[in-house]
């Protein structure tokens, strides 16, 4: 177990370096952010001074190296646009993002498990085709459209719920439902197909043959074995889920990291973007390690 953790974290460091390096190089293709930040009226001297202050006049490798060194020490620089510590900006926005992400993921998965299990157990019945088709539609519907429709119907037309912002529990309803759609649709299909696989196994037949009630077999034997493979894929799908939360936060003006990232991109605030990217990559690596650990807890046959 410990060896697995160490090797996974080691690989994770490589991934984080690759991702941040990529964004670092890309953002420098725009050329110098100095001219962009200071505007048209800036004199040559002002630009020079700014570049020196920000370190933009040094070679790229040096800049990336010092970025890494400072990052490890916990100093991630100052946002060009907000004129605030990047770290502080990120930390301020993180709780909102985590709240929305956890709620949506929990809701989506909580509904997906029974839906997928029932669809798999009742294969080729009307309930299976209902669940499967609903999941297909859910996966094909663009997140920004679902969110916009939700705002239009429930906030603008009916006036039941707030359209944007964060504060009361009512503010959570529409963004959570919107963001939950993807994990719901995706996990339903996943749990259904792994349920089908498990149902064909000998131990399920044995359990049925020795007279255990159907629902006991379904929840004790089938569910426990079907959830393992689903877990791994949930880890892999995390990137898509984070992409979905970026869009959801933008649609609902949710004050989270995703919206901050879009703001950073649109204002070419690359130091801020770099910070967000680094944290997201680290978060992704950690979640995937956690998924592996959870897998071995759910399925005792898996030992590291």
């Amino acid at each position: 177990m410990l060896r697995m953790l160490v090797s996974r974290l080691g690989q994770g460091v490589i991934v984080v370096v690759l991702v941040t390096l990529f964004v670092f190089l890309t953002t420098f293709l725009t050329g110098d952010p100095a001219g962009l930040m200071l505007g048209e009226g800036a004199t040559q001297e002002q630009i020079q001074a700014f570049r020196q202050r920000m370190g933009f006049d040094r070679p790229l490798v040096t800049q990336y190296g010092s970025f890494l060194v400072r990052a490890v020490r916990g100093d991630l620089g100052v946002s060009l646009y907000f004129q605030q510590s990047n770290m502080q900006l990120f930390a301020e926005r993180l709780p909102a993002t985590l709240q929305l992400a956890f709620l949506s993921l929990a809701l989506g998965t909580a509904l997906a498990i029974p839906a997928g299990l029932i669809a798999g157990a009742r294969r080729n019945t009307w309930i299976d085709s209902l669940v499967t088709n609903a999941a297909l539609v859910g996966q094909a519907a663009p997140v920004f459209w679902v969110g916009s429709l939700a705002i239009m119907v429930f906030a603008v037309m009916l006036g039941w719920l707030p359209a944007s912002g964060r504060g009361t529990p009512a503010h959570l309803v529409l963004p959570t439902l919107t963001l939950a759609l993807f994990p719901l649709a995706y996990n339903t299909r996943l749990i259904r197909s792994s349920t089908l696989e498990v149902l064909g196994q000998d131990y399920v037949r044995t359990a049925r043959a020795k007279g255990l009630p159907y629902y006991v077999v379904l929840f004790k034997h089938v569910l426990r074995n079907a959830i393992g493979p689903a877990l791994t894929v949930i880890g892999i799908q995390l990137g898509t889920f984070v992409g979905g939360s970026v869009i959801t936060e933008t649609v609902f003006a949710w004050p989270g990291v995703g919206r901050l990232a879009i703001q950073a991109i649109l204002t070419k605030d690359f130091p801020l973007l770099q910070t967000i990217v680094a944290f997201l990559a680290v978060g992704f690596v950690l979640v995937n390690v956690l998924v592996d650990v959870a897998y071995s807890l759910v399925d005792p046959r898996v030992r590291y």
């Binding site: 991934v15 690759l18 990529f22 890309t26 293709l29 725009t30 898509t240 984070v242 879009i262 990217v277």
Partner: peptide, 23 residues
């Protein structure tokens, strides 16, 4: 395999946005 891991590690839409904002 490492490059694939790195690609999986990051929401593609953010990478695409970064590249498009830059280029």
């Amino acid at each position: 395999m490492r490059v694939t891991d790195a690609q999986l590690a990051f929401p593609f839409i953010l990478l695409a946005l970064t590249v498009l904002a830059a280029l």
